[in-house]
Design a protein around this nucleic acid. Structure first.
Lengths: 223, 223
DNA sequence: TCAAAAGTGTTGGGGGTACACCCATGT
DNA sequence: ACATGGGTGTACCCCCAACACTTTTGA
């Protein structure tokens, strides 16, 4: 019996409003040339979380430490043809610009969750679905969406992020009102490289400290 | 590296409005004579869930299959003095009358969550806290509370259950109104052995079929 | 008739939803 | 001046919270 970890890493492309996950093309059997999640066997002297972080960095070239949360442990008997392998899965959120696999010349690639490859290795399709489900339910009551955005972002980007992940439209004014009332964003004056068409947007930054303070006092984020 | 499963089994005593969990007194080192969760090593040819069920039945004499849900996987390096042991934890809900350890002459015992023994084995205190947290958040948006009650129950019992688990008082009339409006309970005419003081209560039964039908049509249980 | 628990309705306020027009900028 | 996206306010309705008295039974 062996223990491995697998990571479902999410990124959000604000340009085409696309939620993506990172997959790696396998170079060995089993499932050679299929696409798999980053992951691998847990070492004797590392925690599960450290194991995921190590694998992510080794296999994807990631430098930053992503937001990471344990998802579920998959233990079906036949999930891996090599024998009994239990997988502790984690999902992670990063700013998609933190990782550009094509430049790093690794066999990793971002895939839109709406257009995943057919040849997914192992039971990774199931892990991905479970991660998506968790992400969808969690962004409603915890402000983890910001983990997917640049430090500075516009309301439109945030709005698009939520609409994309929840896969439904949200009234722009009410969304803005609700988030504004939470009082966890700071307006920031910056100049941006982005091409602006129309009225220039204001930029905001998530104030984690303030959020935590409010949370201590009984504040609940809830979309 | 070894893999084990641990079960946090909940029961609700409607007579003294007490949420309890089942613990087993250890007969061997390590943590001899300390109280531990039911659990043990996973066999090569059984799923994680089957492993939990087997251990529960072996160690507690439980016959019925409880509501069971994976909780979290604990993998800290030093959590077990015998070496690297990863634990996949599950929490379960049963009707407390389904299991009477004192009669079965096992070393298992129900403990009030408000009065747990000081000498808990391993990191089981943490597992219990995590299970409690999960239970508290889950009964709000899924009708799992019924798993802890007899098939037929009164509104007062249900109300007490929620107040006990959430550890706060809920307006009796509003609670009743809300649950009644969900239309997932059927009123049942039964005679009860319970000692009745005051006006006799009506009894109800959770209609799982109806709940599932409604859920399919977009109904959300939410307390 | 008293004690004990079960059962029931109304009102007010806050928050959510629905909805349309003006603003700032670049071309 | 026009195209493009950004920014804003109001009205209504529903749901939730707060709240107290009546009913049924056994002793």
């Amino acid at each position: 019996m062996k223990l491995c970890v697998d990571a479902i890493l999410f990124g959000f492309d604000k340009n085409d409003n696309d939620l993506k996950i990172l997959l790696i093309e396998r170079k060995y059997e089993p499932y050679i040339y299929c696409w798999a999640l980053a992951g691998g066997f847990v070492k004797e002297d590392e925690t599960l979380e450290n194991s995921v972080l190590r694998e992510l960095k080794e296999e994807t070239g990631l430098v930053e430490t992503p937001y990471l949360e344990q998802l579920y442990t998959f233990g079906d008997i036949d999930r891996d043809p090599r024998g009994r392998i239990i997988s502790v899965s984690y999902y992670g959120l990063i700013k998609i610009t933190d990782l550009n696999p094509s430049t790093d010349a690794l066999d990793a690639k971002w895939f839109s969750v709406k257009n995943l490859p057919k040849n997914l290795a192992f039971d990774h399709k199931i892990l991905i679905e479970k991660a998506l489900e968790r992400l969808r339910s969690k962004i409603i009551y915890q402000p983890i969406g910001f983990e997917l955005l640049d430090e500075y972002f516009t309301f439109t980007t945030l709005h698009n992020l939520y609409e994309t992940i929840l896969d439904k439209s949200l009234d722009r004014r009410n969304f803005r009102k609700k988030i504004t009332n939470f009082n966890i964003l700071d307006e920031i004056d910056i100049i941006t490289d982005d091409v602006i068409i129309g009225r220039p947007p204001k930029f905001f930054k998530f104030n984690i400290m303030r959020y935590q303070e409010k949370t201590k006092k009984g504040f609940y984020f809830e979309l």
